[in-house]
């Protein structure tokens, strides 16, 4: 888990890593988008005029994934705007090659809120082989994240 991404309070991300080093980026439960009353208006993978995460093309077998966009921790993946005018940016959180973005949430944004940790994922990132262990080092475990949530709750109440 990565909390308060880019200094934005509560904009928590969740990174699920498979033993084959593949990482799935999702929103964590405390993210404002998943709180009651938010309605997603639009999800945009076009992060700048000439860079769209939808243009990502991965080809080539095995070791060298050709053409994949390389992401740093704070590379934006998409911008999600809500009916209340708020806009949120989802970041990669880890260094690696972008393997895939979830096109399903474009057609059906509600699954992002209904199943944020499964079908409503944001993107799939493959860290470099030599970095596969270290990319997750700065992140929180499930337990640590729960403690953070508890502290937040206590400080507000």
């Amino acid at each position: 888990f990565f909390t308060d991404v880019k200094g934005n309070l509560c904009e928590d991300h969740c990174i699920l890593q498979h033993s084959n080093r593949i990482c799935v980026i999702t929103l964590a439960e405390a993210h404002p988008l998943l709180q009651n009353g938010k309605t997603i208006k639009n999800i945009n993978y076009q992060i700048s005029a000439n860079c769209s995460r939808l243009q990502n093309k991965v080809s080539g077998k095995s070791k060298r994934m050709q053409g994949a966009q390389f992401l740093t921790e704070l590379a934006p993946l998409c911008r999600i705007s809500c009916s209340d005018g708020e806009e949120y940016t989802v970041y990669s959180c880890i260094r690696g090659r972008l393997m895939e973005v979830n096109e399903n949430i474009l057609e059906n944004p509600s699954i992002l809120q209904e199943k944020p940790s499964t079908e409503g994922y944001i993107a799939v990132v493959l860290p470099k082989f030599e970095e596969s262990k270290t990319v997750t080092q700065g992140l929180l475990t499930q337990k640590e994240y729960e403690e953070v949530l508890l502290k937040r709750f206590n400080s507000t109440s």
């Binding site: 498979h18 084959n20 077998k61 895939e100």
Partner: peptide, 13 residues
């Protein structure tokens, strides 16, 4: 089927 995540590191998408 999209290439399963569990083999995505060695099979192309």
């Amino acid at each position: 089927q999209k290439t399963p995540l569990r083999v995505l590191h060695r099979r192309p998408l």
